[in-house]
Design a protein around this nucleic acid. Structure first.
Lengths: 227, 227
DNA sequence: CCTTGCTGTGACATAATCGTAACATTGATG
DNA sequence: CATCAATGTTACGATTATGTCACAGCAAGG
């Protein structure tokens, strides 16, 4: 599953340079050229990382950064700041803005890709979310990437595992197909919602007796039963 | 029970930044501004983790690190080094100093907190510190740099050995290719993730019957099986 | 200087997984 | 009970991840 990166800069040249390099490093790239667009796309697409120029028309980069940090949905997304002056670094990284890293312009694409990789790895390690979910005979162990039913390990594919994890983490609450596509497939809304059904079936089949915890809520979506 | 962290740096600004961020992440923070004070507080308070600047007045950071590692009481405490130069990383992480991780200045507080969390998690699981790992017919002797299968020594290259070690130390938990690149290849670089696959193949080939303990988790990474 | 072993990469082969479409079944509604 | 929409089920071609191999660069050591 490709990781998604949002690039925000008003200079088309810089954006293009970044896009080319990030794409060839295997990332999916989305771009925005001003602060407003950046905020909108960040909230909609929930990228895995944001590369943000400090100087932007309309809403300034610093402002964008602060706003992203305030919103629960986006506050966890790593941000790399593009900045011209070395003197600004402390402010950028410090409490005021809370960026995760910076690169001074003009930057070498190589270095930027390197920092992107590093940040994504560090962010991945975070996993502040609970490591393990248990419900009756079903257990989901995230770091081991392993689900067990009555103590017996069940082989799930990456997608099935994630689907189960998302549902189990929101135990009791119904998740729409769109929501699931967003959370599990990282908002590749090019995908048909019926795909979710197919995966649910496969998941249920593999889970055997534990399939009863996966409820269909007709006309709404799916949920992990609570009782 | 709050975990205690000792922060050692002679720049008051850096210390303050660290204190604020670590406190808000739920840790108890103690600080020291030179090497001597650091050693005294480390021995007295036995913190769960130490953040140590490389450049210190009086007793240098490198010296502090060595001394802490020599003393039985403090040798097990994870140390994160704050360092200015990327060139020093090898020495810091290597045998000479034996720090557990490093962050280059200027650093982002968010990243540092993530690394602190990670190290504390790893330290708790604490297989890491053992010199020798055994699993069924496979044994890995770290100081002797030697792996054996059914008592018969297996010739591994440095990279293969490290790869096996990292996987075995995190027994059961899936490691992404990115994570493995970081842990095995030491510092961040632009090596292709497929390189990991190649080394896994070589490792499996050499391990023979013990290769079955090295699991591929499709779409995620590799893991050392636990059962 | 040559030799040797180690490494990272690209190319190709293979197998697992995915998304979709098509058809079957179920449940709601009047 | 007839109808329609939603969901379950199945099969299959396309896509992608991984295994495997060969090769060239390089460093270490003779």
């Amino acid at each position: 599953m490709k990781q998604k990166i949002l690039v925000v800069d008003d200079e088309p040249d810089a954006v293009e340079l970044l896009e080319i390099n990030l794409r060839s490093a295997g990332y999916e790239v989305v771009s925005a050229s001003d602060g407003e667009e950046a905020l909108k796309k960040a909230r909609m697409l929930l990228p895995d990382l944001i590369v943000l120029d400090l100087m932007l028309p309309e809403v300034d980069g610093t402002e964008v950064c602060k706003i992203l940090r305030r919103d629960v949905k986006t506050s966890g997304i790593p941000i790399i700041m593009l900045t011209a002056k070395a003197g600004e670094i402390d402010r950028v990284l410090g409490l005021e803005l809370g960026a995760d890293d910076y690169v001074t312009k003009p930057f070498s694409p190589r270095e930027l890709v390197l920092r992107v990789k590093r940040l994504l790895r560090v962010a991945q390690q975070d996993e502040t979310k609970s490591d393990r979910i248990e419900w009756k005979e079903l257990a989901v162990d995230i770091p081991r990437h392993q689900a067990t039913v009555k103590g017996k390990s069940v082989d799930l594919t990456a997608t099935e595992f994630k689907l189960l994890t998302v549902l189990a983490q929101r135990r009791g609450r119904v998740q729409s197909r769109e929501q699931l596509l967003h959370d599990v497939w990282q908002y590749d809304n090019l995908i048909d919602t019926r795909t979710v059904d197919t995966h649910m079936r496969r998941l249920r089949e593999k889970l055997g007796s534990a399939a009863k915890y996966l409820d269909t809520v007709r006309g709404v979506g799916y949920r992990f039963v609570e009782d």
